[in-house]
Design a binder for these strands. Structure first.
Lengths: 199, 199
DNA sequence: CAGAAGTGTGAACGATGTTCAAAAGTATTT
DNA sequence: AAATACTTTTGAACATCGTTCACACTTCTG
């Protein structure tokens, strides 16, 4: 328990982020209310707007934590010394697994929007590198002709394709992809992309 | 101009949908306000809740119109008598073009959410078939082993992959895919998927 | 034309994010 | 230790939403 003011402020910061995360896990992004989260954290309503600028910035903090956890989960999903194609397949399945196991936190990453005209802070943008960082190396092996910005861009595209399949299956309210078919579809997509790329 | 009550009600319905569409085009989904849209349509606030159940149902009507237009745009994007791979490439570019040219209406298709526990009406679900309907035939030619539900499922996956790339590039607030690189990335993705599938 | 039935209205309600004057707490000075 | 200046916290008040519903108005019926 911190004694001086800085430590107490830091404590409150953590309590607010934790409470917000719990509320999102329990009821999704739209279940996050300023009054509830401050009550959970044991502070007055106004403190939220002193510690963070507004509710949106608090969500950004939760999202950054989720991204960090996602990075760890992806790294853990790749077997040691696997071939590039196997790394890709493992990363895709790891991504799908994380989305399934942390559905509401993962969903908040992509459904949260800042108000019009408000830019995403730079520190938060950088946290999104985990989404494609581990794709770059194996993709570079499959496509030695791609380098630097081009390679990174293609890695983003590969991620986006897998993400699209997972996203539409899990949050799309139209044509339902059955859960038991989802892993197979993701595998088929990655396999096709990799075979086509390496072709 | 309708004279009897049914016709007047139908007129109001159309005016409300048109006004809602215009508001979404002008300011996105979150720029759609009940008071503004009823003022635009020239009726009292309460009429919105008599003609439609609530604001969400009105958005569903706008989205259905957008989907219908998307279907037309996709059909127009495919050249006569093209080979399956070319049809796929043309559909993907057509989809990207529609998203770019109708950004806010297209965006509303995927960012709009119903409240927790409210199911999407069946008639609206069916309107989403245009998203993958035209993919089925060429995909079936490339993969004669896939049939029926499996083929349709794979078509959905192919659409979802392309959609993911377009979505993240256009609405993702992280890693920006430059606009001039987007068409090339989509083309590369479709090419890789098709080569891998047919391989 | 009187009354019944149906239709349209917009003030009022409840929920929500945000602000800010005042209260409570802490540090500094005398 | 008391008085004063400064900082931190509080929660009532505000503005903006979607939504409702008692009432006014219109149209049909006898």
């Amino acid at each position: 328990m911190g004694n001086n003011r800085e430590e107490q402020r830091g404590d409150l910061r953590k309590r607010l982020i934790g409470a917000a995360e719990a509320r999102i896990v329990a009821g999704g992004l739209e279940g996050l209310k300023a009054r509830e989260v401050t009550a959970d954290a044991g502070c007055a309503l106004g403190m939220l707007y002193i510690v963070f600028d507004d509710l949106d910035r608090l969500v950004l903090q939760v999202n950054s934590r989720t991204l960090a956890r996602l990075g760890v989960a992806l790294a853990a999903a790749v077997p040691e010394g696997a071939a590039p194609k196997e790394v890709m397949a493992a990363l895709a399945q790891g991504y799908l697994g994380f989305a399934l196991n942390n559905f509401r936190l993962w969903s908040a990453l992509f459904t949260h929007r800042l108000p019009h005209g408000v830019a995403v802070p730079e520190w938060h943008k950088l946290d999104h590198e985990v989404l494609f960082a581990q794709i770059i190396a194996p993709l570079g092996q499959l496509r030695p002709d791609l380098r630097g910005a081009e390679l990174q861009q293609r890695a983003i595209t590969v991620f986006a394709a897998v993400h699209g399949v997972v996203m539409l299956a899990l949050t799309g309210r139209f044509f339902a992809t059955p859960r038991n078919a989802l892993a197979g579809e993701v595998a088929a997509l990655v396999d096709a992309m990799m075979r086509g790329l390496a072709g």
